[in-house]
């Protein structure tokens, strides 16, 4: 039983950091462009398939393939931003329509190209680490650590660099930021692209753990939005914790409660939190 609970905790934490990395994109995009980008799920899917393609078909080593996948996703994000999202700035409804439309188009395209047959990467990093009698798969641990590093790195960049300062200033007062000389259009594009790149990274890492289907991102993005709301929109570190809390709730919840409803547990938890803390767990922080 101990192994089972520990396993579910670990699984929940790993899935949680994946929720967290998408949630970070959701939070950043919302803070800077005023739209909720549900299409981040398909960018995650794109990153996952790109990683699969670069390792399985192109034969690149997995770490290089991940970098290429992130690059491809960022490029796709840039195209999407310049062609579509640019016209939806600060317009929640239009942004929603565009992102939902993008999900339909990109998922159908992926289905056409990759078919519905699940794709699997060859074992990237086999082996386990024994730790106090518990078994930790090396790959899961690596994914977990990489995602943690990226989220904390983003936080450090936002608080310590001029770009981060400009972004945070813009989120507080767009016009004042412009009066300080912040190039606001460029900042918005940068944030949209960075968020898609984060989703691409999440997808590329996901590909090393689970099999791929064209619809893999849709559930993730819903969870990511949940995690972002749970944390309180705008909180960087909060999106990580929001994701992990959600992942762990689902993981541990499904030991004791029917597995079929696992997606509900996080949601119930979210509602419970929002009843007592309407602004989210980490409201008022960055």
């Amino acid at each position: 039983m101990g192994q089972l609970i520990f396993g579910q905790l670990l699984n929940g934490a790993i899935i949680g950091t994946l929720y967290g990395i998408i949630a970070l994109g959701v939070t950043l995009t919302f803070g800077i462009t005023g739209i909720v980008n549900f299409a981040l799920g398909v960018f995650m899917m794109l990153g996952a398939y790109a990683a699969w393609y670069f390792t399985d078909t192109a034969g690149l080593p997995y770490p290089i393939a991940v970098l290429c996948a992130v690059g491809v996703t960022a490029l796709a994000g840039l195209v999407a931003d310049q062609a579509l999202f640019r016209f939806t700035r600060n317009n929640l409804v239009n942004g929603l329509l565009v992102s939902i439309g993008m999900i339909a188009v990109l998922e159908a395209t992926a289905l056409l190209i990759f078919t519905a047959t699940p794709k699997e990467l060859h074992r990237v990093m086999p082996g386990v680490i024994q730790f106090m009698g518990f078994v930790l798969p090396k790959m899961k641990l690596t994914v977990f650590l990489v995602l943690l590093a990226v989220i904390f790195g983003t936080y450090a960049a936002l608080t310590r660099t001029w770009i981060g300062r400009a972004a945070y200033a813009y989120a507080q007062n767009p016009e004042a930021a412009e009066l300080m000389g912040v190039r606001t259009a460029r900042l918005q594009t940068g944030v949209v692209v960075y968020s898609t790149a984060l989703a691409g990274l999440g997808g590329a890492l996901y590909a090393s753990l689970y099999s791929l289907e064209p619809t893999l991102g849709s559930l993730f993005v819903l969870k990511a939005v949940e995690a972002a709301i749970l944390a309180g929109i705008g909180s960087v570190i909060g999106s990580l914790f929001g994701g992990v809390i959600l992942g762990v709730t689902e993981g541990v919840g499904s030991i004791y409660l029917p597995l079929a409803f696992r997606d509900v547990y996080g949601l119930v938890f979210l509602v419970a939190i929002l009843l007592f803390m309407p602004a989210g767990l980490f409201a008022g922080r960055k």
């Binding site: 400009a166 945070y168 300080m180």
Partner: peptide, 16 residues
């Protein structure tokens, strides 16, 4: 002013 920034951070943004 940037309400969530400190005085010093606001001033730094002025020199952006």
């Amino acid at each position: 002013v940037f309400v969530k920034f400190t005085v010093a951070e606001n001033l730094m943004m002025g020199g952006y």
